[in-house]
Design a protein around this nucleic acid. Structure first.
Length: 108
DNA sequence: GCAATGACTGGTA
DNA sequence: TTACCAGCCATTG
């Protein structure tokens, strides 16, 4: 097991803070922390994501992590996450990172 | 230091 | 939805 970097701890901590029924994109996490980028977040998840609700972390288009598509669907379905077919409805499920009330964005 | 890789993202076709 | 391209940045060899 590789040593957990301080950056990884921030990522994992944030992922654990994501409320059920909500999700965050890799880029959102990186932007929220203000460090690294979506690739770094993905690396953290791939290495230490096994100890956090990784299914709440998805791509910017709502697609789940590779190799866990079916697994994510099961969790989302169990948490009541707004789905869009086999993908998450980011416009509804995207978490602001501190505003659990800002679930619905300006939509037409 | 350079080249390759990766659980990424946005735009275009 | 899928495919291709350019940008992004840390890790690895």
């Amino acid at each position: 097991m590789e040593p957990v970097s301080p950056y990884a701890e921030r990522v994992l901590d944030l992922v654990e803070r994501i409320p059920p029924g909500r999700v965050m994109a890799y880029g959102d996490i990186a932007d929220y922390l203000g460090e690294g980028g979506p690739r770094q977040v993905g690396r953290v998840m791939s290495t230490w994501g096994g100890g956090v609700p990784w299914w709440r972390v998805v791509h910017a288009d709502g697609t789940p992590a590779p190799g866990h598509e079916r697994r994510s669907l099961a969790h989302w379905h169990d948490e009541g996450t707004p789905l869009r077919g086999e993908r998450v409805d980011m416009r509804l499920a995207r978490w602001d990172g501190g505003s659990p009330s800002a679930n619905f964005q300006e939509s037409g």
